[in-house]
Design a binder for these strands. Structure first.
Lengths: 206, 206
DNA sequence: GTGCTTTCGCTACGGGTCGTAGCGTAATGC
DNA sequence: GCATTACGCTACGACCCGTAGCGAAAGCAC
């Protein structure tokens, strides 16, 4: 999943530790110098590998940063706080906390911008970040339906569209609040946002 | 508002037509080569001016692209379709149409990414794009309150927070849908989104 | 008109990054 | 041992950056 360029089956195997070192170095470089001034030569020095080694594993800066950032979002967990509203607030707060970290802010938006002109990169982001985290929406909704807090979907297509909409609204609002409005997505804001979102979902099924 | 570097009062005045030519050339370059491969030398050639002229007016690539993209959003209008839901749908569809244009997609996200590490650039984006377009939310809400579709705010602080939340939700959702999920924000999607948003706002005042 | 000031187009430059090629060496499978 | 691949290192041409310096042009004050 990480290395875009696959390793061969024969010959000397790749150093597995180098992958982790490179991704960690990439995140550190994002923190210290940001996306635009991040150079692959610098990352290689930080990771303690040769620049050519880096190019053997990743096609370029875009792919490398996507992988480095994607790992950050794997820490997201769906808490069980007893109610859908509280569960969502918990996830959104975690999401906001990740987006507050400079390596996530600088890297994520930059690769999304690059992806507007790169179909393969867009698919890479979708697969390794977006689709990967939709598990949270699915699990949260299923639990809420068990509790009777949300009505069941009429059909599968309806359900899929609903998940997509919720994901776009949650991720979009938090990202916009954090990166564009440049205001913190703190507990007060998350509480207000969650209330509006849930009221809307409950009142407008489908 | 456009040229970051102010002109002097005496001496030969700047060619006013050059500003428009440079901004148009910037947008055209965003369409053809995208943000990352956009060079100021290329923009200067496209605009028919010397590279040094460009540097006399803008501090760099970031500031230039912000100005070039900001103009795109000035075309937004609040239509009067008779109901708040219809009005919002109209604005959101216009917003989605702008974001569907490659010069807006590529440029906007890139400068937002750069702004995560540049306070002045962040303020520039806020002033020339975000705050500038909040007029739409304000006008839409005022009209809805006249119609009785939305309750009045309790106080000014409440009202301001509400506008910020609405703006983050609308802009965030459309941007995320268009650029990250890479799905079109068509009429069907906008209709569903608007329904959820308005139901939420009506049910969860303040 | 005559100066003063600033803009403009042009050329040239050092500095930095890119992505690749080439080499000798190290590590694994057969 | 042999083939194959990964690794570290060096070097390279290509490109873009941002600035300096120049002569010419276009306004303003007088």
């Amino acid at each position: 999943m990480q290395s875009r360029i696959p390793a061969s089956r024969t010959g000397r195997p790749r150093d597995a530790a180098a992958d982790a070192a490179i991704l960690a170095a990439t995140r550190q470089a994002l923190i210290e110098v940001g996306w635009s001034k991040l150079t692959l030569g610098d990352v290689a020095v930080r990771a303690g590998v040769a620049k050519t080694t880096l190019y053997r594993r990743w096609a370029g800066k875009n792919e490398l940063v996507v992988d480095a950032v994607a790992e950050l979002f794997d820490a997201l967990r769906l808490p069980d706080r007893g109610s859908l509203a509280a569960d969502i607030e918990g996830v959104v707060l975690q999401f906001a906390a990740i987006l507050a970290r400079p390596e996530a802010r600088s890297g994520l938006m930059a690769v999304v911008a690059e992806a507007t002109r790169d179909e393969a990169l867009r698919e890479r982001i979708r697969a390794s970040i977006v689709e990967r985290q939709k598990r949270l929406v699915l699990a949260g909704r299923a639990r809420a339906q068990e509790r009777g807090e949300l009505p069941p979907e009429r059909d599968a297509g309806e359900a899929a569209r609903s998940v997509d909409l919720i994901f776009d609204m949650v991720a979009g609002a938090v990202v916009h609040r954090t990166l564009v409005s440049a205001e913190p997505a703190d507990e007060e804001w998350v509480h207000g946002f969650t209330r509006v979102l849930l009221s809307g979902l409950a009142a407008a099924p489908g």
